[in-house]
């Protein structure tokens, strides 16, 4: 059984059908790409998968559990984590705390334990610090843990966002344009990091990206979206040679 099975997914905003009859099937451990021209509805798909938007049709099944229309916090607990196209960090919190918030549902103690500083507080905080630092180390952010998130340079902010998402212990990680604004070196490094993350944490990754060499270099399977509908799907090679895809990207005479 696939990790994520999306069938007949659709959403309409008023009269506009933003996404229509979309099917996605992501296997355990797969690196999956979702591409398409601007305005194709890629981020809308992410927002439906993470509960920001409620789909008007269709089903989303994660690991055998129907999560269609659940609120975002519940979907996070079910095992989907994400990053955002326009980075959304907790700007005024420290780098370490950003990751520790991500651990929120994994290391629990109640409010009174925190206020009264009971032994469980010390113990859990200690575990959280250790776990958070482990994640920061993977993304080479361990030296910057005391800075506030907004003090980090852009590339590191992107990394911190991934670290925070991983802190929730997801089964599926959604990355919305992870390579945006990165130079070729950083992009190559990011590719390795994503593969490393997939292998170490045993998760599947679904990513949106415009950088084609990035997508072709990393994704094992790709769905192309155009005007909210699936235009093509297949391996990188199949997509590259698909005349419909070439037409959609370069403009052809349909």
């Amino acid at each position: 059984m696939a990790l994520l099975e999306v069938s007949n997914l659709g959403i309409a905003f008023g009269g506009l059908q933003a996404v229509d009859k979309l099917d996605l099937r992501i296997e355990q451990g797969q690196l999956y790409g979702l591409i398409g021209p601007n305005g194709a509805g890629k981020t809308t798909v992410f927002n439906m998968l993470t509960g920001v938007y409620k789909p008007t049709e269709g089903n989303i099944v994660l690991d055998g559990r129907d999560i269609t229309g659940l609120p975002p916090a519940r979907i996070s607990q079910a095992g989907i984590a994400r990053t955002f196209q326009n980075i959304r960090l907790f700007d005024k919190m420290s780098v370490l705390d950003n990751v520790k918030v991500g651990l929120h549902n994994r290391y629990k103690y109640n409010m009174l334990t925190g206020i009264l500083r009971l032994p469980a507080y010390r113990e859990k905080e200690h575990e959280m610090n250790r776990e958070a630092r482990k994640l920061l180390k993977i993304f080479e952010l361990d030296k910057e843990e005391k800075l506030t998130a907004s003090q980090l340079p852009y590339g590191k902010q992107r990394k911190l966002e991934i670290a925070r998402a991983l802190a929730t212990n997801p089964k599926l990680l959604l990355l919305d344009e992870p390579a945006a604004g990165m130079n070729p070196n950083e992009t190559a490094e990011l590719m390795n990091t994503i593969k490393f993350v997939r292998d170490t944490f045993h998760i599947s990754v679904l990513l949106i990206e415009h950088d084609m060499s990035f997508v072709m270099g990393i994704c094992e399977y790709i769905t192309v979206l155009n005007y909210g509908r699936e235009l093509a799907r297949g391996t990188g090679k199949e997509i590259r040679n698909n005349p419909n895809v070439i037409a959609a990207y370069l403009g052809g005479d349909d």
């Binding site: 996070s76 960090l89 918030v101 991500g102």
Partner: peptide, 13 residues
């Protein structure tokens, strides 16, 4: 306070 949408996305009620 810093980002409601991101807070939701990591499972905060």
């Amino acid at each position: 306070r810093d980002n409601e949408i991101a807070a939701q996305s990591i499972g905060i009620n």
